[in-house]
Write a protein that binds this DNA or RNA. Structure first.
Length: 305
DNA sequence: GTCCAGGCCGACA
DNA sequence: TGTCGGCATGGA
């Protein structure tokens, strides 16, 4: 991590392959997103550090990311944790030069890495959020998934109001561990999903599932197998979590319908490619499947930066 | 009305 | 190990 305190704010110095605007495009893809706000080129996010609510205002000038604290300057210890959080959120530890080198010569990716140069996987550092957001999104369209997340967050999350705008924290697993299935059913979650989400919350509340223990596994097969042991977590969800929470660049959610549609569109296919065909297409992506997938997702929503 | 969404589970061969 | 029905809902 490369950062410094600068007066009341902090500054981060990301690696060369970083483009804040491209990341904002991804972050701004849904009007229904409630976990961050984008306004005038700044990204606002509420986080909780050492039991303290901290509102971040994140901007970028040149290649320097600057984080301001609208609610007041927190302690140096908190600022350091915020720096680590932002570093993780934008996956800045990842050296993308190998990805770009590979992608420039790849028939599927070469145009994408030109179009979206500097885009990084926007991570979900909170394991509970990563798992349950994936479960929410299973087998429903993305707008409806965002609608359900919004209801979930506004029902069970913590909030803070600043200058008339409400900022939300994702619900904590210990709170969700104690609710009843019907409380989610009434938000239009299916019975099955309500069960899964509450079970995940309970498993995390008891310490049965923790980010720490999964992070320290050096074998990705082991991580995947452990995740698959959680009810409601299949191959797609396990890969998604490995990609978005643990930033495993080799995670490859081949079952993802978005990935399938992106490939169909880019290659002009008559139908969606099968899982085996996707494995073949991605044969050259070894080690970078997660980034290839993320850039392909990006290609599904063409927008101006 | 039909089909598809950032799937998963349990049952059955 | 591979396949299939059921789940539930919103949007095109």
């Amino acid at each position: 991590m490369n950062w410094t305190c600068h007066g009341s704010s902090i500054e981060l110095f990301p690696p060369r392959e970083f483009h804040f605007g491209e990341c904002l495009v991804f972050l701004g893809r849904s009007e229904l997103e409630v976990l961050h706000q984008i306004k005038d080129g700044y990204l606002y996010k509420l986080v909780k550090v050492d039991q303290e609510l901290v509102l971040l205002k994140i901007g970028c000038a040149g290649q320097t990311i600057r984080v301001d604290f609208p609610l007041g300057t927190p302690s140096e210890q908190v600022r350091e944790k915020v720096a680590a959080y932002v570093w993780e959120w934008f996956d800045l530890e990842q050296n993308l030069s190998g990805f770009y080198e590979m992608a420039r010569q790849d028939k599927v990716l070469h145009q994408l890495v030109q179009n979206y140069y500097g885009l990084r996987i926007i991570r979900i550092p909170d394991l509970f959020e990563a798992l349950t957001w994936a479960i929410i999104g299973q087998q429903i369209n993305l707008p409806f998934a965002y609608t359900l997340k919004k209801r979930f967050v506004e029902q069970f999350g913590e909030k803070l109001v600043y200058e008339g705008t409400v900022f939300w924290l994702y619900p904590a697993f210990d709170k969700i561990a104690a609710i009843d299935i019907n409380e989610l059913r009434s938000l239009q979650f299916t019975t099955r999903k309500a069960e899964y989400i509450i079970e995940v919350a309970k498993a995390m509340a008891t310490g049965q599932v923790t980010k720490e223990s999964l992070r320290h596994m050096n074998d990705r097969q082991h991580v995947q197998k452990t995740l698959l042991g959680i009810r409601g977590v299949g191959l797609w969800t396990a890969d998604y979590v490995m990609m978005k929470c643990f930033a495993d660049p080799a995670a490859f959610p081949v079952a993802d319908v978005g990935l399938q549609n992106a490939l169909k569109s880019r290659l002009g296919l008559q139908r969606k490619p099968t899982v085996d065909e996707i494995m073949d297409l991605g044969a050259n992506w070894e080690g970078w499947q997660a980034y290839a997938t993320f850039y392909l997702w990006r290609s599904l929503y063409e927008q101006a930066v």
